[in-house]
Design a binder for these strands. Structure first.
Lengths: 227, 227
DNA sequence: TGGTGTATAATTGTATACAAACGATCGTAG
DNA sequence: CTACGATCGTTTGTATACAATTATACACCA
């Protein structure tokens, strides 16, 4: 141990082995996607047996998924009285935006200095923007949303603050659901790329003040256009 | 329905029926307490069978607890390769503090206006401060920590931002663990009450700027005195 | 001697089965 | 007719059991 280590390390960017996520994680994602797409409705009661059947799994991994979502505030459960999907009214969207601003401003503040030191890290953002534009041009809004969240997740990752990343994962699920309830058209598709590119450029420049302003605008834009 | 409603409503402050938390929640709390007290060590591998035995329950609720803690970043798990307790080095404590400042400043900003409108809400904080001082006078640090976290949770609750409250619950577990690794003595006990009373007074006055400063100092104080 | 392949043990992932608690419905007494 | 109480069905909480994957140790071959 120690001799054959540098044989080919760092030959590829990351070479990440995405170990297939557990059934519980898959179920949690499926439920969130279901809420986002409107198949599952806010306030709806979730019966474990039914859901397990829908997702072709037994109750055990499904319950694990519900526990995850409960910890993240997506569903609310009262012991021995069942689980319901949380409500997503205008107030809550407001709250989500506020929390997002606070969290992302922190992530930006930390990551900006790192992006300035290591400009190669910007490649990660560029790749995501490209895939976002591709999805937007096809009006595939679910993929656009996922790319959007990936963009901000990448910034949290670069900030090297694991707590911020953890909190973001929770918040991202809420944002994804809000995205799903938005109405979007070709004009929205056209601005997705430029908007994120502007944030990318500000990160590259390291202009802290402008970043804070831009992020706030970027996030609050959502609050205006809801069903 | 409707006639016998006001028979004795509002006779007690809340009269909250704390439905016994599920075994999963109990297990999650127990694990966090174990990390905080040093029984479980950062980086340690958690074998499901062993832990379930220690906590006198089967693997199913224990696994639910691990999923919760994984979503909160307390433990890290690789599918089919087990679960480990996250590391809590100085860097991470730094990250926790930064996230705490961002989150609590948001909570304070929202709750301050409400405390000014409804001063009776301050009673909740006062009660917690009293119990905190009582625990501090006996040097029962675990109870002090719990009261401390309750104090800040109460502020998040009053801010009426459920997302902030959800994120706080996650962060609070990290903070609780950090508290556990602190060394505290009689001098610390003496300042617990006054420190929190100052925050309470600033909330009552609604001085936003002073609040932000005070919160930052209050939180960063921890970073100085660690093992 | 270093590396590769295989067998075994340990651990996690999932499913099934049972027990307990809750809500609702119906019946009965005042 | 109303209020209380019991019974039943549904749903959740938990335990046990089995399947699948992985790590480790050891033998074998270049």
């Amino acid at each position: 141990m120690g001799t054959p280590k540098p044989l080919e390390a760092a030959s590829l960017p990351t070479l990440s082995m995405t170990r297939s996520p557990s059934l519980a994680e898959q179920a949690a994602d499926a439920i969130v996607t279901g809420i986002s797409s409107g198949v599952l409705k806010p306030g709806q009661r979730l019966v474990e047996t039914e859901l397990a059947g829908m997702l072709h799994m037994s109750r055990v991994p499904l319950r694990e998924a519900l526990k995850i979502l409960e910890a993240q505030g997506i569903v609310e459960s009262i012991p021995r009285r069942g689980t319901r999907i949380a409500h997503f009214n205008d107030d809550r969207v407001d709250q989500i935006c506020k929390a997002r601003i606070a969290l992302e401003q922190l992530a930006m503040a930390t990551s900006a200095s790192r992006y300035k030191r290591e400009p190669s890290l910007l490649d990660g953002l560029d790749r995501i923007i490209v895939s976002m534009e591709r999805a937007a041009s096809r009006l595939e809004w679910i993929d656009v949303s996922k790319a959007d969240l990936s963009f901000h997740r990448e910034i949290c990752r670069v900030s090297e603050n694991s707590i911020v990343l953890t909190l973001w994962e929770t918040l991202a699920r809420h944002v994804f659901i809000v995205f799903g309830h938005e109405i979007r058209d070709e004009r929205d598709a056209a601005i997705m790329g430029p908007h994120h590119r502007k944030i990318r450029d500000l990160l590259a420049a390291g202009n802290a003040h402008a970043l804070n302003d831009e992020i706030e605008r970027h996030i609050l834009r959502l609050r205006l256009k809801r069903k």
